[in-house]
Amino acid sequence: MKNISFTPSKACKLFFYCLILFISSCSSDENKNDSENSTEVSDALHLAFKTPDWEQNINCEKLDLFPDAQNDSTNVVSASSASTRETFYFSYPKDSSKIVKTKILSKHKIMELGSNNEPFQFSQKLPLNASSIDDTTKRLASLEGLSDTEYNQVIEIKYLKSESNYAVFIVKCKYEMKAYLIETPETIKKITGTFSFKIRTTKD
């Protein structure tokens, strides 16, 4: 068998090409993993939803939420969109010291509309489709659940500012839920979306 030898120049070139191939391969895998586990939520204050029938992204830049006490540990905020007739309830800790200790990427329960009783639960009601905005009988309402397909996931919590009575934060979440049609409860639809809200907590 004929001996094969490398000159220093050829050996260096081969090593360089192998190194490039290795780096390219790692980068490709990392990008693929990042894409599959993407948790991006827009920095803009908003509420977005997508159903099998329609989707909307509601601008919440002018939404100024003040909390209502749900129980000793939990505040809730709620609002309705005039343009889409979507209504939501979002709950979170009363105490600012508790909210800064929140585990990011943790998942919390989806609740029946307005029945939030623990921090970071989400519930909502919205029209079945764009054509039923003014038809109050055709509304989807969230079903209580916590599973791989029913959750509200905290993506980011960011301190914004201090007010005389409150500490103000921005909370970003993504969610997935099952909702029933109020008119015919056996009709179940999947809703996914994201939101970013400005919320207030006490300074205790």
Rank of each mutant, 00 (worst) to 15 (best):
L128C: 01
T87A: 01
S78N: 08
L113S: 08
Q121F: 03
S80Q: 01
D29K: 15
E55A: 09
F66E: 15
Y151F: 05
E30R: 07
N59V: 01
D148K: 00
E144N: 10
A69H: 15
N59E: 12
K138T: 03
N165Q: 13
E144S: 11
N33M: 13
S115Y: 09
E144R: 12
S123Q: 04
D43G: 10
S35F: 12
R139H: 00
S147Q: 02
A82H: 08
S164V: 07
S80V: 05
F49V: 09
S78W: 03
L128G: 00
K94C: 12
T84Q: 04
S27Y: 07
I99F: 00
N37F: 13
D95A: 15
V168G: 01
Q121P: 06
G114N: 01
I99A: 01
S162W: 13
S27Q: 04
L160K: 13
N37L: 11
E30I: 09
L47D: 11
F49N: 08
S78M: 03
D134T: 06
L160V: 12
H46Q: 10
A167P: 08
L113G: 07
S27N: 03
V154P: 02
F66T: 04
N116W: 08
K161R: 14
P119F: 11
L63Q: 07
P67T: 00
L128Y: 08
D64V: 01
K109S: 13
W54R: 07
N116M: 02
V168P: 03
E144C: 07
A48N: 14
P52M: 04
S73R: 12
Q56D: 14
N152A: 03
T137V: 02
V41Q: 09
A82S: 13
H46C: 04
K107A: 05
H108E: 07
L105Q: 14
S28M: 07
T136K: 11
T84N: 02
K103E: 14
T84A: 03
S78D: 09
K161V: 04
D68S: 05
A48T: 12
N129K: 03
L160E: 15
C60A: 07
L65W: 04
S97Q: 15
A82V: 10
V168H: 09
E156K: 15
K161S: 10
N31D: 10
S132H: 08
N33Q: 14
D29C: 11
K98D: 01
K109L: 12
K62E: 15
D148Q: 00
N75H: 15
L105V: 06
S83R: 11
R85G: 06
N31M: 13
V77Y: 12
S123F: 05
N117R: 11
E30Y: 13
H46S: 06
D64C: 00
S73Y: 12
P119M: 07
C60H: 13
L47M: 14
Y166Q: 05
L105M: 06
E150R: 06
W54A: 08
A141F: 10
I157M: 00
E150C: 05
S147H: 02
D135K: 02
E55C: 05
S162Q: 13
L146W: 05
S38D: 15
I133S: 02
N116G: 07
S123H: 05
F120S: 01
S81P: 05
